[in-house]
Amino acid sequence: MRLYDVAPQPGSNRRRRRVGRGIAAGQGASCGFGMRGQKSRSGRPTRPGFEGGQTPLYRRLPKLKYFPLVNPKNFTVINVGKLSTLAANFEVTLESLIESGILTADDGPLKILGGGELTIPLSVKAAAFTASARAKIEAVKGTCEVLDG
Rank of each mutant, 00 (worst) to 15 (best):
M1C: 12
R2V: 02
V6S: 12
P8N: 03
G11N: 05
R15E: 11
R16L: 13
R17M: 09
V19C: 09
V19S: 06
V19R: 15
G20R: 08
G20H: 07
G20N: 08
G22H: 06
G22D: 05
I23W: 01
A24H: 09
G26M: 06
Q27L: 13
A29Q: 13
C31T: 13
C31L: 11
G34N: 05
M35A: 14
M35K: 14
R36M: 11
Q38F: 06
Q38H: 10
S42Q: 13
G43S: 06
R44A: 08
R44K: 14
P45N: 05
R47F: 10
R47I: 09
P48W: 08
G49F: 05
F50W: 13
E51N: 00
E51K: 07
G52W: 07
G52R: 06
Q54S: 10
Q54L: 11
Q54A: 09
T55L: 15
Y58W: 13
Y58N: 14
Y58A: 07
R59S: 09
R59L: 15
R59I: 05
L61E: 07
L64V: 14
Y66W: 11
Y66E: 08
Y66P: 01
Y66R: 15
F67S: 10
P68H: 13
L69I: 09
L69Q: 12
L69H: 09
V70L: 11
N71H: 08
N71E: 11
P72Q: 06
K73E: 13
K73L: 11
K73T: 11
N74H: 15
V77G: 02
N79F: 04
V80L: 04
G81A: 03
G81D: 01
K82T: 06
K82M: 13
L83V: 08
L83H: 03
L86Y: 07
L86C: 04
A87C: 07
A88T: 12
F90D: 00
F90A: 04
E91N: 11
T93H: 06
T93P: 01
E95M: 04
S96I: 01
L97M: 03
L97G: 00
I98M: 13
E99S: 12
S100N: 15
S100H: 15
S100Y: 08
S100D: 14
S100G: 09
S100E: 14
I102E: 03
I102K: 03
L103D: 03
T104V: 09
T104K: 14
A105V: 15
A105N: 14
D106S: 08
D106T: 06
P109K: 04
I112S: 02
I112E: 00
L113A: 07
G116D: 02
G116Q: 02
T119W: 02
I120Q: 14
P121D: 07
S123Q: 14
A126P: 00
A127W: 03
A128E: 10
F129Y: 01
T130S: 10
T130R: 02
T130H: 00
A131N: 12
A131D: 14
A131R: 15
R134V: 00
R134K: 13
R134H: 06
A135N: 10
I137A: 00
E138P: 07
E138F: 04
A139K: 09
K141N: 15
G142L: 01
T143G: 01
E145L: 12
E145M: 10
V146I: 15
D148F: 12
D148R: 13
G149Q: 05
